[in-house]
């Protein structure tokens, strides 16, 4: 468990501080929702000592769609998408409260598909937190661990606080006027995710990158140039931003440039 982990160089308090600082940093600068939610996810994974996760937002038809994930690899994405159909994510969403599964063996019968997918990826426990706006749930954050982890009440509260902070950020991004504006923001976030996937495809094809490398390149370029991820993805797909430039920028900043085959 996180608070019993003495090997870790950062103390629990330092991690919590770092998490809130990274969230406020993200909120203070030019950001878009996908970027903000990725920051939230990484902060929670770090504080709670978990291994992987994803954030899902509800779409126009009430389906949960994956907007941010710790890995771009298809297998982990698959596990979280399964959890949205039958598993901790949909239960968390329906009940509007956190769902804790310290040992996935216990849900083998309840959620066989999720169990099989998580187990195959080596995950032994999972935790889901609702993304709430007053009485409404607009999404779910789901995190997974390769260890059997029971999230303490205190850790659960921190995860919820970080999630609430992110929701406020989502609303803050454009002046929050009406309920229409809120759902508009959600749908823009889902659409940004689609643009990012399309941009990843362009980069993967042009520069022979894996999907994870492509995502990292997009995010890095956005950061370095003070642009939103949406803007960079859009320019990549419309081919107004050359993929060579995206890559050269990335290699210049990265300590180990990747040789392009």
């Amino acid at each position: 468990m996180s608070n019993g982990d003495i090997v870790d160089t950062k103390s629990r308090e330092e991690k919590i501080n770092a998490a809130f600082v990274s969230m406020t940093d993200a909120l203070m600068s030019e950001y878009d929702i996908v970027d903000l939610l990725s920051t939230l996810l990484n902060a929670c994974i770090d504080v709670l000592d978990m291994d992987a996760g994803g954030i899902l937002l509800v779409d126009a038809t009430g389906e949960l769609e994956l907007v941010a994930s710790t890995s771009e690899e298809a297998e982990i994405v698959e596990t979280i998408i399964v959890a949205a159909g039958e598993g901790p994510c949909i239960e968390c969403y329906d009940k509007a409260e956190h769902v804790s599964v310290p040992d996935i063996e216990r849900v083998a019968e309840k959620w066989p598909k999720f169990y099989a997918s998580a187990k195959q990826q080596g995950f032994l426990s999972t935790y889901a937190v609702p993304m709430r706006l007053r009485d409404e749930v607009m999404g779910v954050m789901n995190i997974l661990s390769a260890q059997p982890v029971e999230i303490s009440e205190g850790d659960g509260k921190i995860a919820q606080a970080l999630a609430d902070l992110a929701v406020l950020g989502v609303l803050h991004e454009r002046n929050f006027r009406t309920p229409v504006a809120v759902t508009e923001q959600l749908h823009l976030a889902l659409d940004t995710r689609i643009l990012i996937e399309q941009a990843k495809g362009v980069l993967a094809q042009r520069e022979h990158l894996t999907m994870t490398e492509a995502f990292d390149a997009l995010r890095h370029y956005a950061r370095v140039n003070g642009l939103t991820l949406r803007h960079v993805a859009e320019a990549t797909v419309h081919r107004t931003l050359a993929t060579e430039d995206l890559i050269s920028d990335r290699s210049a900043a990265a300590p180990v440039p990747r040789s392009i085959s």
Partner: peptide
Amino acid sequence: NTPTEMRREVHQATGMMLVQ
């Protein structure tokens, strides 16, 4: 099963194909 547009592969493939 899972809605088509939710599948990332569809959008990734769109990006790859527009280059191809």
